[in-house]
Design a protein around this nucleic acid. Structure first.
Lengths: 133, 133
DNA sequence: CGTCTGGATTACGTAAACGTCAATCTCATG
DNA sequence: CATGAGATTGACGTTTACGTAATCCAGACG
């Protein structure tokens, strides 16, 4: 079925993006579909990368930041020094993300508290309404 | 000291933004500084809102989305139906944020695993290097 | 009174992330 | 062979979120 290769149309339907977007990501070197004549064919690797790209976007990363993050996942056949550097960057990123999650947790707690407040306000408004009837 | 009112310059230093940014947020109706003659003076409320704006931006919300979120915090003297609607929207937002945190947790776990992999690769590379010497 | 200094307004500029449109190309099908 | 559906390649348009420069005020100060 998915012989490991997908056309641009299949990609669009699967991941809910436009062809333009996929071509744009290729131009930006985020994806590397192979060519069959003119046509692009997206590999399993492209799909994995696209998933990470979309996830990154939901977190508000820029495409350039995402591109660097993606490099952390391909590791490949680098030199020791290069590999070590990559590892360090990844560690920093991880710290960023954990800090981010902390902040998000804080925001969630804030909103929850706000909601409890809202519940009370609504309840008292209903009381008033009842009393007025 | 902070007599509850801050000049644009003080705001910029406190929150590390430019004057342009603050004026822009006012134009977009995210902030409502009062005027002393020509000059803007930012209130405590503006500062609270700005903090939420900056937080929202770190989470990748657009300014328009943030504006809607901010409305959830001012609640004010609304009608019951309006208040209830606001409450519902806030609940949805909360659900969004919790889902987001789940995803972030997943991303963090992924990256952690990747890092463990990286550690092993680096270790083996060091071994090879040693052996070659 | 001249002149800074800080803020305001107006307006044009810009980078990112695509959208949109026109002009091919190509291949299967009637 | 004509043609219609999909894909590709420019190329220009658009929105968001400000940056930047020019010009204009108003109060402080020597």
């Amino acid at each position: 079925m998915t012989e490991d290769l997908m056309t641009i149309r299949e990609m669009c339907e699967t991941y809910d993006v436009t062809p333009r977007t996929l071509r744009f990501y290729e131009a930006k070197e985020l994806l590397f579909p192979i060519r069959e004549g003119q046509k692009r064919l997206f590999t399993k690797r492209d799909r994995a990368r696209l998933k990470l790209i979309l996830r990154g976007k939901r977190f508000g990363f820029s495409l350039e930041e995402i591109r660097q993050l993606l490099d952390l996942y391909h590791v490949g056949d680098q030199q020791l020094t290069q590999m070590t550097r990559t590892y360090e960057i990844a560690c920093e990123r991880l710290a960023d993300m954990e800090a981010r999650r902390e902040e998000l947790t804080q925001a969630i707690d804030d909103l929850k508290e706000q909601l409890r407040w809202g519940e009370k306000v609504i309840a008292s408004m209903k009381q008033e309404k009842k009393a007025a009837e």
